[in-house]
Computed example of a mutant assay.
Amino acid sequence: MKKELILLGLMLGSGAVATRAQKLVIGSRVPDLKGVAWSTLPPRTEAPMLIEFYAPDNASSARFFPKLAEIQHRHGNGNRGIQIVVLTRGVAATTLDSLRARYGERYFIGSDPDGRVYRAFHVQYVPYTILVNSKGELYWQGNLGNLPTSTLEGVR
């Protein structure tokens, strides 16, 4: 009996953590990007955005740049194409300068110096990706490696 109670407590506790980490709901309005220090021009709010929460010291984050380039090439053209936004949290200015020099013509790059935007989006880990439609609603969230092409094609 004691083992069953312990297992039940562990299951309930882990479920509470998972629920707390995912407070954004598909179809709900996403928080704005106020507070971001942009290294490039800010993205347009009337077009879809793929927001990649990025940490330069995280190897998993860095390996997604080729996938971002592919998405930009296939889905980012024109005024209604998907805008790629790369957000960092509290990184050095030299890191932002390096990102801007390398990707600034293709992506919108910004820093969240005090973590306010990360908290508003409930980012618990990186890399973390969200896809926002042109109405500012959450369309998809998760790991960029799991983002289906059909989802990218369906966002407007």
Rank of each mutant, 00 (worst) to 15 (best):
V17K: 12
G136R: 09
V86Y: 09
S60M: 08
L147I: 08
A18Y: 03
M49L: 13
L12H: 03
K2N: 13
G81Q: 08
V30S: 04
R74T: 04
L50G: 10
L41C: 01
V85D: 02
G136W: 02
E52K: 02
D57L: 05
I6T: 01
T94V: 12
A93H: 13
N58C: 15
V17I: 15
G142C: 05
N133S: 03
Q22S: 14
R102S: 13
E46N: 09
L99H: 08
M49G: 07
Q72T: 04
L144D: 05
R156Y: 04
V155P: 11
K23D: 12
E52L: 05
V25N: 12
I109A: 00
K23H: 12
F53V: 04
S111Q: 09
Q124I: 12
L68F: 11
K67W: 01
R29F: 07
N79Q: 14
S28G: 08
N143C: 03
I6Q: 06
P127S: 05
K135L: 10
Q22V: 10
A37Y: 01
L144N: 03
T95P: 04
L144E: 05
Q83G: 11
R102W: 00
P56A: 05
I82P: 01
V155H: 08
Q72A: 15
Y128L: 07
N79V: 13
A62S: 14
G104L: 02
G78I: 02
D97W: 01
Q22E: 15
G104A: 10
D57M: 06
G13I: 11
K34F: 02
L8M: 02
H73P: 05
N143F: 11
Q141M: 09
R156E: 11
I130V: 15
L96F: 01
N58G: 09
L50V: 02
G76K: 05
R100V: 11
D32L: 01
R100C: 13
T19L: 14
L12W: 00
A101V: 04
M49Y: 00
K3V: 07
S150Y: 11
V36Y: 00
F64E: 13
V91N: 09
A18N: 09
V85T: 01
G154N: 13
N133I: 08
Q22H: 12
W140H: 05
G27K: 06
T45N: 08
F65K: 07
G154T: 06
G142S: 00
E46T: 14
G81F: 04
